[in-house]
Design a binder for these strands. Structure first.
Lengths: 227, 227
DNA sequence: TTAGCATTCAAACGTTCGTTTAACTACCGA
DNA sequence: TCGGTAGTTAAACGAACGTTTGAATGCTAA
């Protein structure tokens, strides 16, 4: 937590985080025991409590390690986009691509554990534990705010409520797509290797999400906040 | 297991299933202990093992109780739609509405536990346990097959791979939307009561999903990464 | 060398887990 | 009336859980 020595740069900590990432993805939080985890990381059983304090604190650390830089990258991508467009509103599709980029680039990093994390993240959006969802939400909030503002500038004619819902839908599509491991095969025989051609996936996701975001307003007679 | 008296027709079984549905939704499978569960159901601790055999078998029973009739309803809705249209291909939006209907009608059933189940179901699509995902997939398979065929007839120009992916995206959007409890508020201040106006939600979801399903194909004419 | 600190380690802590047992109750057909 | 079946009950089972302990280890600075 303080100034660190230069010698062994948190090797034990890192090994624990890597093992936790993989095992949490595979078996869930409660389904992964400290004994499994420390065995996989090849560290002592007490190491987790020594370095992180508790299992819950470890879970939080697993998310902070990746999510902070990922969302920073997301915001940076949006800012660069806005810089290039002067004060013109951006195309919705470009905003979508900027948002997807950070996740999809990470899913290509199979060796470094990025793919594990992304899948874990996709699952955790709907984790039953309120505490964990709150953490994820808190870590996402700044990026979410910026992107919402960008979409509002890009689509001034789309009612605010509708935008919020459509962002919700978009987020869900992404989360589910990232979390799913073999669900595609459920729908139809589909070569699962496709899923990791990130460029192709990005094109498909972007087309689908842009179609949904720009769809005509719902309802025959334009459902508004009638209530 | 035989003819039942008139008084308590599986009352214990039903109470266990109801309590399990609620607690699994709230705390997850591993996060719910048999002692919590039997206390909530006001039955003896041993009752679950007596009536279902094991906790895992109880989990399976929870899903079978609701999913079998729900998917039967889904298929029936599609068949009625096809009957009304003679041999004409259906409008994609009508197919989407038929698919959504079963889920959204159930989410309005708050008293009967349907809402609990639907949220639980949304979460379980991405459950880490392979066994559970396999069960869900197996229970969904027949309906999925029929709807895929209907979409193929409705959109003959859409390549097969693309359809599979877009159905995957649609399924993800629905699952996430149903599973989420307070995620909408994460994106923006939004009255959470809105979520349970099923008619409004159906209109919004249908518009979004139809927009995505019918979106222009990704690739050459649309891909122009402007750096 | 020695004192101080961060880290690792084997062992044990008390608790809770899912499941099993055997005794007990209520009811129905013979 | 009686025997058998279905269901309920309190108590206990061994195993696994997250966490804590106190001693041992290795390194750095004085």
């Amino acid at each position: 937590m303080s100034l660190r020595a230069i010698k062994p740069p948190h090797e034990t900590r890192t090994r624990i985080l890597d093992a936790a990432e993989a095992l949490f993805m595979q078996h869930g939080f409660e389904g992964t025991s400290m004994r499994q985890l420390t065995a996989e990381a090849e560290v002592n059983l007490a190491a987790v409590n020594y370095h992180f304090g508790s299992k819950d604190a470890l879970i939080e650390a697993v998310f902070r390690r990746r999510l902070d830089p990922m969302n920073a990258e997301r915001i940076a991508a949006l800012e660069q986009l806005e810089k290039g467009a002067a004060s013109q509103p951006l195309a919705a599709e470009a905003i979508i691509r900027a948002f997807l980029g950070a996740s999809l680039r990470m899913i290509e990093d199979a060796r470094g554990g990025g793919r594990n994390f992304i899948r874990l993240l996709g699952r955790t959006y709907t984790d039953p534990t309120k505490q964990i969802r709150a953490l994820i939400g808190q870590l996402y909030a700044p990026a979410m705010k910026r992107y919402k503002a960008a979409f509002m500038r890009s689509l001034p004619e789309l009612p605010h409520d509708e935008l919020v819902w459509r962002m919700h839908f978009m987020f869900g599509t992404l989360a589910y797509t990232l979390a799913a491991t073999d669900t595609v095969q459920l729908i139809a025989g589909c070569k699962p290797e496709d899923r990791y051609d990130a460029r192709l996936l990005e094109d498909r996701l972007t087309a689908f999400l842009a179609g949904g975001l720009l769809a005509p307003l719902p309802g025959r007679d334009n459902v508004r906040k009638a209530a």
